[in-house]
Design a binder for these strands. Sequence first.
DNA 1: TGGACAATAT
DNA 2: AATATTGTCC
Length: 523
Amino acid sequence: MSSDHGLDIMERGLEAGARFFFPKPLTLKDYENIWQFVYTENVEYFQGINIDEGHQGPPPPPPSQDRRLNSLSISDDIRRHGRSSSSSSNTSHGKRQRSQDGDHGNKKQKRPYKKLERKEDQDFGKKTTSVPLKKTRVVWTTQLHEKFLQALSILKMARAVPKRIQALMKVRRLNRANIASHLQKYRLYQNKYKGTSESDYPRRRIRMRLPDETEYHDYSPRNDLSYDYQNRAQSRLRTQDNFRPPHNFNHVPSARPQYHQEGSNDNFMAQENYGHPTAVTNPENLGRSWMSGAPTMNQPNVGACQSLFGSSAPLCDNDLNIGSTTNAIPVMAELQGMAEFLPNASLDPNFGNLGFESLQNSPPSVDIASFDAFNEILTGTIGGEIPNNDNALDISRMDEIRKGNKPVEEEAEDGFSLPHNPLYLNGMNSNFTSQGESFVVNPNYITTVGEYSTKALVNPNMLQQGNEVDNSGWFNSVNDIADFLFNQTSEKENEEEGDGGYVNPEFDSSWFVQDGENNLGAT
DNA sequence: TGGACAATAT
DNA sequence: AATATTGTCC
């Protein structure tokens, strides 16, 4: 077998004693032919040996089709034949080995990699005579790995176990073992490359890396010497050819599109925006998804957005970047006629007066609440903790709750308490959540629900009961939301001593419960 | 050949 | 679930 199809090569091979010449790559047809060859050339062998028992006996009738398909030895031989000429000489070789194995009777056979027919083989290649195929292996593509990472970031390290990850990823035929294996490798990489520079990472299909929990909150782009914002980001951005600004959007290329990390290529997994805030105010950024799989920010009227949790969130276009109270600029809000969310200063559509681009090495937005704090809310209220089935995280459940069609469950089955008065964020937020520093909240999706909606969940001056019909009753400004969130965080922070600044609470319903007397909500 | 990788065993 | 080992590939 060779990728060299030259006649001389083929002839030389045949002269040297080869039975066939197969040009690479082998097709399924080739396998079928080889299989038949192997069988017809070795009928006595296959008929004279009980393969399963590994001892010789009177020749049984020729094995039925099914039996042949299920016995591993035949296909084993096929594989060996196909693999390397040195080990492939003939099948009597294989025969000898097999009976030797049988001699060491009590030795427990290690289970070889089985060759199984997968379900899809039946679906797809009906007529392929069902040649036994090697069991397919999961290939962790960058896309798949990103999904994995997304799940991890939502679950946090401590709770990131295969089963939960599987439930979050929702990838068909990706089983728990697959994930366990990948997780093991992932953790291995985490240790192995802890404290090493980027150039030390293996360059292969993916580069495994995620900050540990410390990095989550300690991260400061300013101090990140491993990352050169200007250069890397720019090279990526130049390739941005599918940016289509909204119709009323005056697109002026930014001189310094700094806030995007390099994207994926064959050697690196995509960790777009990994650990780095993204400037919503940069028009170039609006055309690119924040994380792979997430909708881009400039998709107006797209209908349902894909999110990790399925597609349900109806609005992609008026999400606001909640950054620090001083520099979060909800650009898209204006475009979507949500002027009430704009800060007082008028916006230059060309972003000329925002002052961001002059901040060369600092992100436009900084911590408001920790990413994890929000995902606690998300997973806690959406139902990420519902354990008893394989599609645990069902965003439609949250939607139903939000519409008041379903009651808020007091307690999930694993004992995880749901807040009595939850603050509901749409699941899609998680897609817009960068790992660590900033996040995006669509204020339309901060709402109270169900029977509790008659009471304000938090200080009514800050978060009021919203009206989904006319959008009234929400925060008065983005800054108000930011203040609210910031207060949640910093107060929580103060309660916890120690590592200063990182809030990593389990969901704490005390944030949102009523004050008994006053019904004031947030504490 | 050693290492990467995913499956499989413990 | 976590960890160790194996089979396969390159």
